[in-house]
Simulated scan of single mutants.
Amino acid sequence: MSRLRWWLGGAALAGVLVLVAVFVFVIPGDEEPAERPGPPGTGPLTVVSLGDSTLSGEGAGDYTAGTDGAGGNWCHRSPHAMVHRLDLPEVTESVNLACSGAPSGHVALGDVAQYTEPSQAGQLRDLLDTHRVAAVVVALGANDDPRFSRLISECFTSWFLDHGAPCSEEIKADWPSRLEAMVPKVESALSDVRTVLSEAGYSDDDYELVLQSYASPIGPNIPESLRNLDGCPFRTKDLTWVSGPGTASLSEALRTAADGADARFLDLSRAGRGHEACSGGADPSSEWFTRFTVAWDDLDDERRVSHALQESFHPNARGHAQVARCMSEFLATDDRAAACLEGADGDLHAAPSVRAAPDG
């Protein structure tokens, strides 16, 4: 009898151990969580650019047929644009949705159109059906209240008329208030980009969102022989302000917008120093920006004449390649902010946590 009791007790104990083992191996709370494979959806891993002319490729040439005036589309997207030069691990495709002249409202969700094209955030939403987005690079703000192109145009007019105070004196009067008005518009556009990705099932950890600022295309150290319509028709005092305090304060305002939208920030305010338009004198091969440029053939076409100067003072193909090198380095880090600065090798590199001084 005692042997039977011992055998029954042993069988019961074995049954309990089996039940415990079952619970150990099948209770969901005890399983190792599966590592998320990256951005959701299907399709190639992709980097996307949104924003204005500095990312569309204005000035880099070879514009895609549909964006060089056809049907009123002057977005001027170039195959040489920065987004197509990025080198990111496992990313196999790049898509450029930026459009020359775009304000923040065109990047945001809504009804703002630019050169016939609808919202860039809306275009991004459509792209997510066929692509897995690993990074979104944005450049915007200059076409909002600061109207940076206005600044360049007014300084050109000041040189051409050759009288009165330098244009920078007048621009400085309301520059801080213009920057202040710009910040919430940029922040709202970045938030809309996050909304589009969130609605598609993305978490913030699935992708990188980067706002870049602007490099000054012109500087004061240019030969007098090029301070004319053959190169860079501006007064020295205006060039000093534009390339120094003007660009630096614009960059700092954009940093504020990036912080507000929890985006990473890449400061380009000093990225072009020594390589501005006309800085190379007789040899422009070291320059990363276009000089005063006229599309002469467009002057005979009433549909194109108003865009004949559109390429002037924008990053050229060399400039886009340099910024792409810096952006690629930045995206490979975990730094929240960095600045593109020229290294000893003559190329741009990402320098972590370097801020631009407002006094240039």
Results as ranks from 00 to 15, higher is better:
P245W: 05
A181G: 14
V137K: 01
F313T: 00
G244R: 10
S353M: 09
C232Q: 02
E90C: 08
A65F: 13
E187Y: 04
V47M: 03
T236Y: 09
D300G: 11
A282N: 15
A121Q: 02
G246I: 04
S177A: 15
D297Y: 04
P315Y: 02
E199F: 10
D126N: 13
E224M: 11
W296A: 07
D205A: 15
S243L: 00
P103K: 03
D162M: 02
D126M: 11
E170G: 05
V16N: 07
G319E: 00
I218E: 00
L86I: 08
G71C: 04
L55V: 14
R3I: 13
A121E: 02
D259H: 06
T42G: 06
V24H: 11
S243T: 02
G43V: 08
G51H: 02
T92E: 10
I171P: 01
D345K: 12
R85K: 14
A337T: 13
S119D: 07
A60V: 07
F292L: 08
H307K: 02
R273F: 11
P89L: 12
L88F: 12
W241T: 02
G43H: 08
A339I: 10
L268G: 00
A98L: 07
R132T: 12
L50G: 01
E276W: 12
L161V: 14
R318A: 08
E224K: 14
A253G: 15
F265L: 10
D345C: 09
E187W: 06
S158Q: 06
S177L: 11
L341Q: 08
G141Q: 04
E311D: 15
V91E: 01
H314G: 03
G260H: 09
R85T: 10
F23D: 04
D30P: 06
M82V: 06
D230W: 11
A271N: 03
S216M: 02
D52Q: 12
P220I: 06
L97N: 00
C326K: 04
A173T: 15
R318W: 10
D301H: 14
S216C: 05
D345V: 11
E90D: 15
